[in-house]
Design a protein around this nucleic acid. Structure first.
Length: 494
RNA sequence: GCCCCCAUCGUCUAGAGGCCUAGGACGCCACCCUUUCAAGGUGGAGAUCAGGGGUUCGAAUCCCCUUGGGGGCACCA
């Protein structure tokens, strides 16, 4: 049978790094073995699920390039796949039917315990230093007792009978795992009193209905797997294979969380990380090819991926390494592609009021050779060359004076440079035309070229770190270079 | 508290009994290139393979224990 895998996010928050990585591994496995990749939305937590988050998650996964074969929408088109719908709130009847089946078999039963009773049990267990578990108060009610409670207006939740014995499975990543059902916390609720089904139940009903063969998910579900296996069996379905992925960790090695790390994919996108880098980085967080290759495209990853080689231990998320990888990918982008990707970030600078005009594509294209290798992220564009797109720059007199120079020398230097640059004329205002005369100027006055260049750099850009000076002067244009030099000279005269 | 999982440089990792005086990458430090910043190149510091017992002629690699870390134990997912 051909492999069927799925990613089943809950639309209760924006697309999380961990969800993206789980989706990626499912995708890589499906594509590697020629299987089917399914997307299913687990939206049974009505209180927290929203359509905004749903859209955010779908958009994020599309952005990463992790296209699915079956799901609530596929490639922008409406629900496709033999097992639609792919949104759990639209599959309620199937859970209802499954619950009735379990009830009929007495594999599940209605439970009328109140939140207060359960809370009291929990406190008592805690006081006795016992693990929390359902005490089974409603496990063996007679028909009359149930009827009496229903008559009281109490609506029962449905609990699944856990029974006795041990459940074992062969995890594709961890090997054999055995758990005594006595440690499962007692009979667990599969349907709330309000009739809505719970995660442990829906996940099994759906994985069975959608004929999922390999459940690839985070390690945080490992301890819950026996519950799922018990449900698969009770429902009379074949149990799928499981693969539990190592967790992505905060710097302190706890499960990655919003509090301690940046977890929303959106934020990475907004900062200018490119999909290739995110995919590449995430793929190698918990898995490696076994070779020393590390810059790999999605297709190359698919080709090399092997679930069995995935690590068992958690991996700390290292943003520095991601940034390095992002730089690697930015440098590999085709010029036109890079310009397309840069445009929204330049617009964002505009919106934020950090620049005063939009550069043309032609300007960006000209700039590319000197900025492509200087961008750690697309979002760094403003920092790098924003001074080109504002009317005037703030120049701090302190930084204007090179370390080995004094204010008077700086003023002389800038004045002389101004003359030299003006003499170049505007017909041939090119880097090749500017450099020789300015070097000659420095030499004739006994200045180190670097000092002169630094003074000019700060005068026209307001900063000490910029792309190469002559390219920068050309990008700025003769008029602005001259007027900024004038302003800087004034600053020193005062 | 109970159950489960995990354990190689600060971080991501290679390593599946001898090739390991443990390799690569990020980060860090030098140097080279160089008008600054990057990028690139070269080199360096950095892991007694968590600790202790075994097994073996031989262990980072296999077994056991200890320690440490993490995850799970909801009418959340």
């Amino acid at each position: 049978m051909t492999a069927r895998v799925r990613i089943a996010p809950s639309p209760t928050g924006p697309l999380h790094i961990g969800t993206a990585r789980t989706a990626l591994y499912n995708y890589l496995h499906a594509r590697h073995v020629g299987g089917t990749f399914i997307l299913r939305l687990e939206d049974t937590d009505r209180a927290r699920s929203t359509t905004e988050f749903e859209k955010d998650i779908l958009d994020g996964l599309h952005w990463l390039g992790l296209d699915w074969d079956e799901g609530p929408e596929v490639a922008g088109e409406p629900a496709r796949g033999p097992h639609a719908p792919y949104r759990q709130m639209e599959r309620l009847p199937s859970y209802e039917a499954a619950a009735q089946r379990l009830l009929g078999l007495d594999l599940a039963y209605p439970c009328y315990c109140t939140a207060e009773e359960l809370e009291a049990d929990r406190r008592a267990q805690e006081a006795a230093r016992q693990p929390p578990r359902y005490v089974g108060r409603c496990a063996h009610l007679t028909v009359e007792e149930r009827r009496a409670r229903e008559a009281d207006g109490r609506r029962g939740a449905i609990r699944f009978r856990v029974g006795e014995g041990t459940v074992a499975f062969d995890d594709l990543i961890r090997g054999r795992v055995e758990i005594d059902v006595a440690n499962l916390g007692g009979d667990f609720v599969i349907v709330r009193a309000d009739g809505t089904p719970l995660y442990h139940f829906t996940v099994v009903v759906d994985d069975a209905a959608m004929e999922v063969t390999d459940v690839i998910r985070g390690e945080d579900h490992l301890s819950n797997t026996p519950k799922h296996i018990l449900l698969f069996r009770a429902l009379g379905h074949e149990v799928p294979r499981f693969a539990h992925l190592p967790l992505i960790l905060n710097a302190d090695r706890t499960k990655m969380s919003k509090r301690k790390s940046q977890t929303a994919i959106d934020d990475y996108i907004a900062q200018g990380f490119v999909r290739e880098a995110l995919v590449n980085y995430l793929a190698l967080l918990g898995w490696s090819t076994g070779t020393e290759e590390e810059i790999l495209s999605l297709d190359e990853l698919v080709e090399r991926f092997d679930l069995g080689e995935v690590h068992k231990g958690g991996a700390v998320f290292d943003r520095e390494r991601l940034e390095w990888m992002n730089g690697q990918w930015i440098r590999r982008l085709e010029p036109e592609d890079l310009i397309d990707r840069l445009r929204p970030f330049v617009e964002a600078e505009m919106v934020a009021g950090r620049i005063e005009r939009m550069p043309t594509d032609e300007e960006l294209r000209t700039l590319l050779p000197v900025i492509q290798e200087r961008l750690p992220t697309l979002g760094a564009i403003g920092d790098l060359v924003g001074f080109l797109w504002v009317a005037d720059v703030e120049v701090d007199p302190g930084t204007l004076v090179p370390k080995r120079w004094d204010p008077a020398t700086t003023r002389d230097g800038l004045a002389a440079a101004r003359q030299t640059i003006e003499a170049v004329g505007d017909v041939s205002f090119e880097a090749d035309e500017l450099e020789p005369p300015l070097r000659a100027l420095a030499e004739s006055r006994g200045w180190k070229a670097g000092d002169l260049f630094m003074a000019i750099r700060v005068a026209v850009t307001g900063r000490t770190a910029t792309p190469p000076l002559f390219d920068t002067l050309v990008a700025l244009g003769r008029d602005r270079v001259l007027s900024r030099l004038d302003r800087a000279i004034e600053t020193l005269a005062a």
